[in-house]
Amino acid sequence: MNRRQTLLALALMPLMANAAGNHGGGHQETTGTAGDPAQVDRTIEVTMSDRMRFDPARIDVKAGQTIRFAVKNTGQQPHEMVIGSLDKLKEHAEKMRRNPGMKHEEPNMLRLDGGETGEVIWHFASPGEVDFACLIPGHLEAGMKGTIDVQPAP
Rank of each mutant, 00 (worst) to 15 (best):
M16C: 15
A17F: 11
A19D: 12
A19C: 13
G21F: 06
N22W: 10
N22T: 09
G24A: 14
G25D: 13
G26H: 12
G26A: 14
H27Q: 13
Q28G: 12
Q28H: 09
G32M: 08
D36L: 00
D36S: 08
Q39E: 07
V40K: 02
D41N: 15
D41A: 13
T43L: 04
I44D: 09
I44R: 07
M48R: 06
D50R: 02
R51H: 05
M52A: 13
D55W: 03
P56K: 09
A57W: 10
R58E: 15
D60L: 08
D60W: 08
D60G: 13
K62T: 11
K62Y: 12
K62S: 14
A63S: 14
A63P: 05
G64D: 05
I67S: 11
R68K: 14
R68I: 01
F69N: 04
F69V: 03
A70G: 03
K72E: 14
N73H: 06
T74F: 00
G75H: 07
G75Q: 06
Q76F: 00
Q77S: 11
P78G: 11
H79G: 04
E80S: 15
E80K: 01
M81S: 01
V82T: 08
V82Y: 10
S85Q: 15
D87C: 01
K88N: 15
L89N: 11
K90C: 07
H92G: 12
K95A: 09
R97M: 07
N99I: 02
P100T: 07
G101L: 10
G101A: 13
G101H: 05
H104K: 09
E105P: 02
E106V: 07
N108Q: 15
N108C: 01
N108K: 12
R111V: 13
R111Y: 10
G115I: 00
